[in-house]
């Protein structure tokens, strides 16, 4: 299993040709209290860099982009029911959706964990 990040603050954990996507701890800190999440339905096709989910904090609404192209196999109902889970466990139970990858080659160019955390420190 390998973990990658985007500069839009999504993470993607890849296991074979399926992947789990969420937002980083830095992202949830910046958003503050999350009060609403809209997750994609299974079967929806998403393109690399396309809006796949919505996350709303008390202050603002933001889009969550898919780091790679593929077909959604599951949205995380747990965060739709309890959006605060994204604040308390953003890189664990607070995942957004699972995806069947079209092309593992799209993972190239994403940041590894160390590079992402280093980059966040410069923000």
């Amino acid at each position: 299993m390998s973990l990658y990040f985007t500069k839009d603050h999504e993470w993607i954990r890849v296991d074979g040709d399926t992947a789990t996507v969420g937002i980083s701890n830095h992202a949830q800190e910046q958003l503050g209290d999350i009060v609403f999440v809209e997750i994609p339905e299974a079967g929806r096709r998403v393109g690399k860099g396309q809006e796949a989910a919505v996350v709303e904090s008390v202050k603002a609404a933001s889009d969550v982009y898919s780091p790679v192209s593929g077909e959604v196999v599951e949205g995380n109902q747990a965060i739709a029911d309890d959006p605060a889970l994204v604040n308390s466990d953003p890189e664990g139970q607070g995942w957004f959706f699972k995806l069947k990858l079209d092309d593992v080659g799209e993972l190239e160019g994403l940041l590894d964990q160390g590079a992402y955390r280093e980059w966040v420190d410069t923000l």
Binding site: D8, H9, Q30, A60, S62, Y65
Partner: peptide, 8 residues
Amino acid sequence: MSSETDAA
């Protein structure tokens, strides 16, 4: 994900 930042 997207977020708005204001010029400081």
